[in-house]
Write a protein that binds this DNA or RNA. Structure first.
Lengths: 288, 288
DNA sequence: CGTCGTCTGTAACGGATGGCACAAAACCCC
DNA sequence: GGGGTTTTGTGCCATCCGTTACAGACGACG
């Protein structure tokens, strides 16, 4: 009963998986489709295009590329999928109750919740997007800058420190619109700007992204699942789950950046190892 | 479970309940709506009318009678409901992952490894130690200072920022042996010093712990499983798993601190909420 | 049987929709 | 740097949409 026709994944997964082989504008559509699933796909082409920041034909081209026939066919499949998923919903209600092991230990509950966020990372970040980010960073960019919002800047800083061990010319911009503006103006065609912008999106991040784009840099945006407004301008978007009660958590964010660095290391090989050796030699910390 | 705005039942229940007060033709529409929910409602008025064996205007009259404004409004509500319901059930995801091309993905391996570290947190940190740490911080200490090593200072800083939202007089000491030494000398009998010292333990951390102890502060040490040398002097020791290849990970460390903050918040109650409100009021970040 | 009120379908209208051809723009590779 | 290719947006059309006005159908009650 839960079986689908052979080869027919749920649309969400189909899109998720094939994101790598899309053109940039198509990818923007795919992103908003996943971010607001399935509502975004049940609206009109015009509405979807507007939400994604592109045009109607791009939406239609996405459909043809995914091998779904017309947009109407796509919507029909979506509706069928939704109906199937909702008629099975009494089940999911039971799951939800079981998933909440009502332990009165506040701390452990917080830990488990965050462990869940980390696990979800495999679902929120499209593999294709990661791959692109990794080869971008491992492909000897001339210059890499990171920056973030009020809290997320700390993760940005950590990313910069870790990345700096692997590749040259990595900078952290604490005040991208102030004292550190030069680090962005220096950016050129193969620079990379990594921008963090999480929930309660800050106005400044949009300006930073625009500035980076304007100077020709490739922009990697790391944001929450609701997608920062800057997502429209960014070249690569890595969405991350951060929601928790009462506080949002950076757990998945940190794991994402660490794993990104890890992957870059594996990908860059020789050069990275050499640089790490240099690093170890010149930066000396007094050990116990 | 899923709490809705007051008075807003799921549309399905709303229709079901008010079926009695409908005209026969309207009831036919309602029936097909319920029979093929929600797909039938996401199609056009013409399609729905045809499926129900009536005419378009009847469909529209149903909407007005149910107090939903236009048909488009109705569809919008339906879409929102569907989205909410589907984002709560990450049921189908596992399939997609299994079906994915089995490139032994470096990134995913890194993520999973870190997820493991977070899970192990429940075993590495003694519950009693956590409990003591929490009641220490929630017990209105006069003063709290955090500091860390070369990398871990970033986590220390984050902890300070988060804690600062809950309790007064929280400081981060970037250079505990340099410019920020005053923050430690100020410490008294009920001050708390939180020190991070991870693998490749740094000499400086021992000095910091000694200094804090000397001035009467209670010392909380957060360290890796092999235990920092400073563990001997510390009052509370929270061990955390950090080991990974090729790099150690701060994932569990961050989760520990966040969850600690979470627990302190739950424990401190009223006072913390009040302080958070103040914080929210005075610190304003420009949002998008 | 006629009249009233309610219920329902037909017809028509403006606006929005999905789809398409075509030209501009961006990109890439010699 | 420039030729060729890919990618993307604009303008347009036929169609379908949601909505409204209107008139016929039905039933109740005098």
């Amino acid at each position: 009963m839960t079986d689908l026709p052979a080869g027919e994944l749920p649309l969400r997964d189909e899109i998720f998986q094939r994101m790598g082989g899309l053109t940039p504008a198509e990818r923007k559509v795919a992103r908003t489709l996943l971010a607001r699933y399935p509502a975004a796909g049940l609206e009109s082409t015009a509405a979807l295009a507007a939400a994604a920041g592109t045009s109607k034909p791009t939406v239609l081209r996405l459909m043809t590329r995914l091998g779904l026939g017309s947009y109407r066919e796509f919507q029909e499949r979506l509706r069928a999928e939704v109906t199937r998923s909702m008629s099975a919903s009494p089940l999911s209600r039971a799951r939800a109750r079981r998933a909440a092991p009502s332990e009165d230990n506040v701390f452990l509950r917080a830990v488990q919740q965050r462990a869940g966020l980390v696990t979800r990372l495999q679902d929120t970040v499209p593999p294709g997007e990661i791959e692109r980010a990794v080869s971008l960073l491992a492909g000897r960019p001339k210059h890499v800058v990171t920056s973030g919002g009020y809290f997320s800047r700390l993760i940005a800083r950590m990313l910069a420190m870790q990345l700096d061990q692997l590749i040259p010319n990595v900078d952290y911009a604490g005040e991208p619109l102030g004292a550190d503006v030069g680090k962005y103006l220096r950016a050129g065609r193969d620079s990379v700007a990594i921008v963090f912008d999480l929930r309660r999106h800050e106005l400044a991040s949009e300006q930073v992204v625009s500035m980076a784009k304007a100077s020709g840099a490739t922009v990697v945006l790391i944001t929450d699942e609701s997608l920062s407004p800057s997502a429209e301008e960014a070249d690569i978007v890595l969405p991350v789950a951060v929601d928790g009660v009462p506080f949002d958590s950076f757990a998945a964010l940190l794991v994402l950046t660490e794993s990104l660095v890890d992957a870059v290391f594996q990908h860059a090989g020789e050069a990275a190892i050499e640089r790490m050796a240099d690093w170890e030699r010149s930066v000396h910390i007094y050990r116990a």
